[in-house]
C-alpha cells in the first residue's frame, strides 16, 4: 500500500521517499519533509535507496510523524499556523500514543516534535499527586514504608504542602 501525504500526488519535480513501517505498510513522503528528521536525512545522504525501512515504528505512529513532517515542510504555512498545528497535534492524545510518538521522534531525531510530545507528557503529570501518577501509569510502588518515609525526610521541602491532600 502506498499512501501519499497530505499534499496529494507528488509532482515529478519533487523528489520523494518511501518509508516502510514495522507493520510493512509504505508511506510516500516528499524528501523535503523526510529530511526534517535528522536520522532520515543521514540515511538519504549515505545511500541512494529511496526506500527506508523502519523496523521499530508502527503504522499508526509513523503516519502521525509523517503528517507532522509534511506540515512542517510546507512553505506555504506560516509559523503561527505550524505552532497551532503542533498544539492540536498533541492535544487529546492518550499517554500511550504519546509514548510511542516520543520514542519514534527520538529514533528519527525530530527534535521539535520530541520537545512538543515530551512537554505534553509532562503536562499530564503536572500538579498530580504521586498516588495519581502511580495509578495512571500502573507504576508499582516497590518501596517499603520505611524507605518511603526516608525519601520524604531527605527532601522534606518538596512534600511540604502536598502531604495534606495526599490522603
Amino acid at each position: 500500500m502506498v499512501t501519499t501525504d497530505e499534499k496529494g500526488p507528488l509532482t515529478a519535480k519533487k523528489k520523494s521517499v518511501i518509508i516502510r513501517s514495522c507493520d510493512g505498510d509504505e508511506f510516500l513522503v516528499s524528501e523535503s519533509a523526510a529530511v526534517l528528521s535528522t536520522s532520515l536525512k543521514k540515511i538519504l545522504e549515505e545511500k541512494e535507496d529511496r526506500l527506508i525501512h523502519l523496523s521499530d515504528i508502527d503504522n499508526k505512529t509513523l503516519a502521525m510523524v509523517i503528517a507532522y513532517l509534511s506540515t512542517h515542510a510546507d512553505d506555504g504555512l506560516s509559523d503561527d499556523l505550524k505552532r497551532s498545528f503542533d498544539q492540536e497535534f498533541v492535544s487529546g492524545k492518550e499517554f500511550d500514543v504519546l509514548k510511542y510518538l516520543v520514542l519514534a521522534t527520538d529514533t528519527l531525531q525530530v527534535t521539535c516534535l520530541c520537545y512538543t510530545v515530551a512537554k505534553k507528557m509532562a503536562d499530564i503529570m503536572k500538579n498530580k499527586l504521586v498516588e495519581w501518577v502511580r495509578r495512571e501509569f500502573d507504576i508499582q510502588n516497590d518501596y517499603t514504608p520505611e524507605a518511603e518515609a526516608e525519601i520524604r525526610r531527605l527532601d522534606a521541602w518538596a512534600w511540604d504542602d502536598r502531604q495534606l491532600e495526599d490522603d
Binding site: 520530541c114 515530551a118 509532562a122 503536572k126 504521586v130 501518577v133 508499582q140 516497590d142 518501596y143 525519601i151
Partner: peptide, 23 residues
C-alpha cells in the same frame, strides 16, 4: 534520556516528588 527530557518540563518540586514513584 527521554524520561529526563519529560522531567525537565516539571518544576523542581514536582521533579523531586517523582523520586517517590518507585525505585
Amino acid at each position: 534520556h527521554i524520561l529526563q527530557h519529560v522531567l525537565s518540563f516539571l518544576s523542581q518540586k514536582e521533579a523531586v516528588q517523582t523520586s517517590l514513584l518507585s525505585k
